[in-house]
């Protein structure tokens, strides 16, 4: 059987990790919420740079739903951008 002190130590460690993960995730979700309706600049692979109005993101951060996407060949009213294509996106608070 496992000594009680070791078991409770493991539980404490697990709870600490859960606490940190929650804090990091909550802060990230708040950040994503704050981008709503803001002008964002996407810096993408292959030196592609585009501007759009940010709409929303799925919770797995696989897709960004945007409006008024200024592509090199014109404006696309509504679009989905794959996060795999993105290096970073920038906006002002």
């Amino acid at each position: 059987s496992i000594p009680t002190s070791a078991a409770s130590h493991d539980t404490e460690q697990l709870q600490e990790e859960q606490r940190v993960r929650s804090m990091l995730r909550e802060n990230f979700l708040r950040c994503l919420l704050s981008v709503n309706n803001k002008k964002v600049h996407f810096h993408m692979l292959e030196k592609v740079n585009v501007e759009a109005t940010f709409g929303s993101s799925d919770i797995d951060v696989l897709n960004f739903q945007v409006s008024d996407l200024h592509t090199p060949i014109g404006v696309q009213k509504e679009a989905l951008i794959r996060s795999r294509d993105v290096i970073s996106f920038t906006f002002d608070l």
Binding site: L24, N27, F28, V35, V61, T90, D92, L93
Partner: peptide
């Protein structure tokens, strides 16, 4: 912060007026 799901980083730089954010 760092998103524990996608490992994405949120970087902030502060200016005179507000702040600029890079995800």
């Amino acid at each position: 912060t760092v998103d524990p799901v996608s490992a994405s980083l949120v970087l902030v730089t502060f200016g005179h007026q507000g702040a600029s954010v890079v995800v």
